[in-house]
Design a protein around this nucleic acid. Structure first.
Length: 307
DNA sequence: AAATCGGGCAACCGCGCGCAG
DNA sequence: CCTGCGCGCGGTTGCCCGATT
């Protein structure tokens, strides 16, 4: 029944790879290519490693064309932008960064970028200002669905329904997060006033303050709310990720053919989420007066969460 | 000079999905 | 149809090394 085990787990080496092991694996993959990782340890010269370990070592370290130098400012901006849109889907983010692995991106985010964001008062999970987030939490309250004929229950600041709250977070996040700046788009009329520029964060490393930094070539990942001259494209509002073409323009900045590839990439994500019913779930929630007061409002103050 | 601390990163772990047997 | 492995992925751990005391 089923396939045989991939390796003898009792006879498998763990821990750091030696230069000899690297050489064996590299020699094998350079002549035979990748694929069928289960047989690689044996065929690559009796490596006492699990096939899974070989695959990890190869994809994260030995693979050709991998970049081992520091992340550039453009790469940082792209990571932040994509994280705002995709969350911790590191493999998808890494696909947009040639020569970088998901492990690279994940480690860089956890050790550097999330801290930078936090230091600047941005929540690295929601990409919203922490002060704004705290205010939302303070006024947030979700009511349980009222039983037929029963009086509405008291409004309590307790998240009693995890799935609904998760979806609520998702929906709320999608509406508030700004992922790129489109100078040609009209300003959002009901947005609030706050302007934070990711490039300023990056400039802090070198100059100690963003004010002296040169203007970035591409204004990716600009955290901006309000009727500022550079208009914003706010993600969400019924769709999972808002303006796809606009988003792709931001994602693909800096490359000639990047916009098209990124557009297809974002489209794939949208299709995926659509298949999973995320947008439908959000639409249902917005239409449910028991939870949000109905109407599908686009800001937290319109959702009827508070008392 | 030794001890301690903290950051960075490579590697491991566990889960979900798809597919082979 | 069922079982169990291969693969890919995200989360977590633990080691190494430089900075600090």
């Amino acid at each position: 029944m089923g396939r045989p085990p991939c390796c003898d787990k009792a006879n498998v080496k763990k821990g750091p790879w030696t230069a000899e092991e690297d050489a064996k694996l590299l020699a094998y993959t350079s002549t035979h290519g990748t694929g069928n990782w289960t047989s690689v340890p044996q065929r690559a010269g009796r490596l006492k490693r699990c096939g899974k370990s070989c695959r990890l070592r190869y994809t994260n370290y030995l693979r050709p064309n991998l970049k081992h130098e520091n992340f550039t400012q453009e790469e940082e901006e792209l990571i932040v932008t994509l994280h705002a849109m995709l969350g911790s889907r590191w493999s998808l983010i890494a696909n947009q960064l040639p020569g970088r692995t998901d492990n690279d991106v994940k480690n860089y985010w956890n050790t550097k970028l999330s801290k930078k964001l936090r230091q600047r008062g941005i929540d690295p999970i929601t990409h919203r200002p922490i002060a704004d987030l705290m205010q939302s939490i303070g006024t947030l309250a979700i009511r349980p669905p009222p039983a037929a004929g029963a009086a509405p229950p008291p409004c309590l600041p307790v998240f009693h329904d995890a799935p609904y709250f998760a979806a609520l977070q998702h929906q709320h996040q999608q509406q508030q997060v700004v992922t790129h700046v489109d100078a040609d788009a009209p300003a959002s009329p009901d947005s609030q006033h706050l302007q934070l520029n990711w490039s300023d964060f990056l400039a802090d490393d070198a100059a100690g303050h963003g004010a002296d930094a040169p203007a970035p070539q591409a204004a990716l990942g600009q955290y901006q709310e309000g009727s500022a001259p550079a208009a914003t494209a706010v993600v969400g509002g019924g769709r999972a990720f808002g303006d796809v073409d606009g988003a792709s323009a931001g994602v693909g900045a800096g490359t000639d053919d990047g916009a098209g590839a990124a557009s297809a990439f974002i489209d794939a994500i949208l299709d995926c989420d659509k298949e999973m019913g995320v947008d439908q779930l959000i639409a249902e929630m917005l239409a449910d007066p028991a939870y949000y007061g109905g109407g599908g409002g686009s800001s937290s103050s319109e959702l009827g969460w508070g008392c």
